[in-house]
Design a protein around this nucleic acid. Structure first.
Length: 175
DNA sequence: CATTCGATCGGG
DNA sequence: CCGATCGAATGA
């Protein structure tokens, strides 16, 4: 069987609102410390887009926690939520513009917290560059997402109606 | 230093 | 609906 192509970092340099849906059907790969690789097809993503986006952590400006989002696309942003769940994001866009894609669900796994638990993703991945050498990367697949649906993001009511209702969540029917 | 509150999940 | 659980952000 042919080896899947690993996404180049350039894939993440563009606008998060385009990168987020284009990750659907791609495969998230994580290698654990035993050298074993787990792979999961991405089925649901959300876009967090710049300081103006009140649901984006960077809306409060650049802080030690959010500074990673200001880096160039193609690196990991991982943080602890509700004191018990690791959220896994991929930074997008050019350096200086804070944006990232939250990987919300993969095939057979619903929920961003369960996703990271299943794949063994923790805060030590924060700031890591994507690639086979770092142990976390994204591959092309044969999956054709088909029709892509959009809707409001989950759990961001605090951001107010304008931003909470933006169609920044993406998923597809085969999931 | 104290308090608030989450990009959630699982149980009742 | 509600509790668990903790670090980042905010304010005194």
């Amino acid at each position: 069987m042919a080896k899947n192509k690993v996404l180049a970092k350039e894939f993440f340099f563009g606008d998060v609102k385009e990168v987020a849906p284009s990750l659907l059907g791609k495969q998230l790969c994580v290698r654990d410390d035993q050298g074993r690789v787990q792979k999961a097809i991405i089925t649901e993503t959300e876009a967090y887009d710049g300081e103006d986006d009140l649901a984006c952590h960077a809306s409060k400006g650049k802080t030690p926690r959010t500074s990673i989002m200001y880096e160039v696309g193609g690196i990991c942003y991982v943080y602890l939520c509700y004191g018990m769940h690791w959220m896994f994001n991929l930074v997008t866009g050019p350096i200086g513009y804070p944006s990232a894609v939250l990987i919300r669900g993969c095939k057979g796994i619903s929920g961003p917290g369960r996703l990271t638990r299943n794949l063994g993703i923790t805060g030590q991945m924060n700031g890591m560059s994507l690639g086979m050498d770092s142990g976390i990367w994204v591959e092309e697949t044969e999956v054709n997402p088909g029709e892509i649906f959009t809707g409001p993001r989950i759990g961001v009511e605090y951001a107010g109606p304008i931003w909470a209702n933006k169609p920044y969540r993406f998923w597809f029917s085969n999931s």
